[in-house]
Design a protein around this nucleic acid. Structure first.
Length: 223
DNA sequence: GGCCAGGACACCA
DNA sequence: TGGTGTCATGGC
């Protein structure tokens, strides 16, 4: 019985994935040049439009601050001014400093060392760093470390609640479990799936209207 | 001028 | 454990 349910869930998830992939194709996520840039972007994008994050990252590059060592050494007040376009700049500058401080303390500032061990243990470790919540943590694991950790964001929950595959009251881990428990642990699949969800929802799943014009929904015709 | 965006955390009951 | 307030810029 449990195996049948899992098989059904897998088919439903893969149908959603295939529908999105046929329409949008490969999206080549995360939009960053290096794993460290992914980590920085994951923190900067917290509750923020990605366009504003791009402005902040451009400022960081211009100021030569997009490395662990330069971020560690820059005064937090100066960093806050550089990332200002991303919003919440006082909070996020402190979070970036906390992350790189921890990275040096624990892994000598090296992401390769951070990702070298067991990623499930790393997930628990990262979640204890101030400013690294579940979504940010999973984004870092998947997109910077190529680890098969599914990322759940507001778009994911909104779309799959609407599709009836998760409940509105499900918390982060419950939604994540839908994907982790029913799909193969494939980082490339998780990478593409989350990217497709975001791409799709930016167009079709705004809060008002919830969704429109998408064949993922019974009442809609075509993507 | 209001709403929204690829969250996380502190505080309170 | 769950609800609420706070952090803030920029596009539409």
């Amino acid at each position: 019985m449990q195996a049948e349910n899992q098989s059904t869930r897998r088919q439903e998830l893969l149908w959603v994935f295939n529908s999105l992939f046929e329409h949008y194709g490969k999206l080549h996520w995360w939009p960053a040049e290096t794993p460290f840039e992914v980590c920085v972007g994951a923190i900067l994008t917290q509750n923020t439009n990605w366009g504003n994050v791009e402005k902040a990252i451009a400022n960081l590059k211009k100021a030569d601050l997009l490395s662990a060592i330069t971020l560690r050494d820059v005064p937090v007040e100066e960093l806050a001014q550089v990332i200002k376009p991303a919003g919440f700049f006082n909070v996020k500058s402190a979070r970036l400093k906390d992350f790189v401080g921890w990275l040096f303390e624990r892994y000598l500032g090296r992401l390769e060392s951070m990702f070298a061990g067991d990623w499930l243990e790393l997930r628990e470790e990262l979640l204890k760093v101030r400013g690294i919540g579940r979504e940010t943590c999973d984004s870092i694991l998947l997109y910077a470390g190529n680890k098969p950790s599914f990322v759940v964001d507001a778009y994911t929950k909104r779309l799959f609640t609407h599709l009836g595959l998760v409940s509105a009251k499900d918390d982060y881990e419950a939604v994540r479990a839908l994907f982790m428990d029913n799909l193969p642990a494939d980082a490339a699949l998780f990478n593409e799936f989350h990217a497709l969800i975001v791409q799709h929802c930016k167009v079709h799943c705004r809060k008002k209207p919830l969704c429109s014009g998408c064949r993922l929904h019974p009442s809609c015709n075509g993507l």
